[in-house]
């Protein structure tokens, strides 16, 4: 049964589409700039200021990166860090957030505070490093995976998602006689796919952006993409340029290509996860 669109609804649609299109245009043009520079020659970049369509065309930046041993190994490292790290993150976080969402659980308040407190207070890098060293994790990806295994922020927000799952579901499952594990796997996880997809994405991005912990814990040949990228984007320090000022071939095209290539994997993965948080989950389907 379809209700005819009223005047108010039409106005609503105009406002919505207008705002969304304007926002997209604003988001797009700096992106286009980055893309344009990544295909431009240095001369054009230096002389033209801001532009969106290059007059020259070169693939030199992309070719340089593709043939750069440092870039390819950084890419591999980033993939390892992200895939394993995210699996670990989302597993631990889902379990913990689900457990803490149980209002009837004794000690829940204390546990919640224990998690929350780490958001505000941290011991700093030195003691954390010493723990990592004591566990023998230095120069191993485990140092990166384990030191960021659960984000307190994500755990707390995910918990609040679980709390909005209707209580009747839990009750009816209990009558069926299924335990908590079955309840989680059979009912809660399928119902919470939007939330799980969201936090998977958050963790993926966090792992993909690994920078500082890599520098602290890893060896030269284990460095991820963000370290590589940052080193291309930094300017030479004036105090050192007196001495070195090495003529690196980091043309604007190469720098912008690095930005594009670094962002690309997460842009490509987005549509796959997007399905989950764009579609409402039919409660009825699960119940039935």
């Amino acid at each position: 049964m379809r209700v005819r669109a009223s005047g108010a609804d039409r106005a609503f649609a105009i406002v919505v589409y207008g705002l969304v299109l304007a926002a997209s245009a604003l988001a797009l043009f700096p992106l286009f700039y980055v893309l344009a520079i990544s295909f431009s020659t240095e001369t054009e970049y230096l002389t033209r200021g801001f532009y969106l369509l290059p007059r020259t065309f070169t693939l030199e930046g992309y070719l340089y990166l593709m043939s750069h041993p440092g870039f390819m190994s950084a890419l591999r490292n980033s993939v390892s860090i992200s895939v394993v790290g995210t699996l670990l993150n989302i597993t631990l976080t889902t379990l913990m957030a689900y457990g803490l969402s149980k209002t009837w659980l004794r000690g829940r308040k204390t546990l919640n505070f224990v998690v929350f407190f780490t958001l505000l207070f941290s011991g700093g890098i030195i003691p954390t490093y010493l723990v990592v060293q004591t566990l023998g994790l230095l120069n191993s990806f485990w140092a990166v995976w384990l030191t960021s295994a659960v984000s307190a922020f994500n755990a707390i927000v995910m918990r609040s998602f679980f709390q909005s799952v209707p209580k009747e579901l839990e009750e009816s499952a209990r009558i069926d006689g299924s335990g908590e594990w079955l309840l989680l796997i059979r009912i809660i996880v399928p119902l919470s796919l939007p939330a799980i997809a969201t936090f998977t994405l958050f963790y993926l991005a966090q792992n993909w952006n690994t920078y500082f912990s890599a520098i602290l814990y890893l060896d030269n040949d284990q460095m991820p993409l963000q370290v590589f990228l940052k080193q291309m984007l930094v300017e030479d320090d004036p105090s050192i340029s007196n001495a070195s000022s090495v003529a690196y071939p980091y043309t604007p095209a190469a720098r912008m290509s690095a930005i594009v290539l670094t962002a690309l994997p997460l842009l490509l993965i987005f549509p796959f996860l997007q399905r989950y948080f764009n579609q409402g989950v039919m409660l009825g389907a699960v119940k039935g």
């Binding site: 440092g70 460095m223 370290v227 080193q231 291309m232 320090d237 050192i240 090495v246 980091y250």
Partner: peptide
């Protein structure tokens, strides 16, 4: 300390 471009990828 490494500067622009970073150090060598391995030893």
């Amino acid at each position: 300390a490494s500067w622009k471009g970073g150090g060598w990828p391995d030893n």
